[in-house]
Amino acid sequence: MTLIVIIIKFLTIILGSIFAGFIGSLTGLGGGTVLVPILTLFYGIPFIFAAGASLISTIATSAGSASAYTKKKIANIRIGIGLEIATTTGAIAGSLTLITIDKNHLIFLVYIIFGIVLLFSLIPTIRKIGSEVPPETKPDWTTRVFQLTGQYYDERMKQTVKYKGIRWWLGEIIMFFAGFVSGLLGIGSGALKVLGMDWAMNLPMKVTTTSSNFMIGITAATGSSIYWYEGYINLFIAAATAIGVLIGAFFGAKVLVRISNQNIRWVFFAILSFLGFDMVFKGFHLANFIITFSLADQFYISIIISIIMIGLLYINTKRKTFQKVNKNEKSR
């Protein structure tokens, strides 16, 4: 191979990573969730190299965006570090599981798990459960013992929001799984972290997303060092993805503020669900199990399924808002 071909190869990885960082930041799922499918499905990179490059790139985006949020004092570092006990333990367990799976030549399992995790993490992101500020709840014993209180200044509402977290133990359990998924699949698993703090601990959405942002970096650092010694990081790929995802996430954050048309996000969700289905099919293909399509067929079937699924979800959401508007007419 000549040098020019290799340079082009390097630049295409950077381009793919910019795309992954951009979509990851716009949909709130993080760069890794998009990067791993792109690298494995379109660049022919073996899963373990894709996971290694993705996990280490996740640190860059996490640290980059967390630096902005901690300065504004929205992220709660105390609660975050407390929950890191579970995520780091989970990350160790997850990456050791990946190593075991890899040594036993069962890597097709990881493809299927990845696809399923990606598809399931779309659902809460689309529905966007939880309002900005959660309803006031009675503090429980963990609120006092683990000091789950805090406050931040909301720029849009122009007031200081005080909050109290509850069910610390449930948060820790979910965080363990978030860490496990992160170490197993080489992603930041921000969706699971948000679920843990938003749904389980009843923290405000702003605190949840910003705190999970810097927690992702610590979790990914744990997994990355294990990946490093196991030889899962190809320096050629990792250098390209780290730079690319960082650029993509930077532009994603700039665009996110200006985006007013919510319909654009549906296109991104369609792309993500396509990647999820394609990962599952690729897993089946590698395992020679029940359904094996040729690679081209996989591609088209995934496209069709994802268009149908996102289409139905889109219609469903629109119908609900439509019903609300027409409620008065119907009652007449």
Binding site: I56, I218, A221, S225, L235
Partner: peptide
């Protein structure tokens, strides 16, 4: 060059750890 990339990636790994340490 390979060691420059290695140094860059390990700096990345150590960056979030400093947060825990300052905490």
């Amino acid at each position: 060059g390979l060691y420059f990339i290695t140094f860059g990636l390990w700096t990345l790994i150590f960056t979030p750890i400093t947060v825990v340490f300052i905490g």
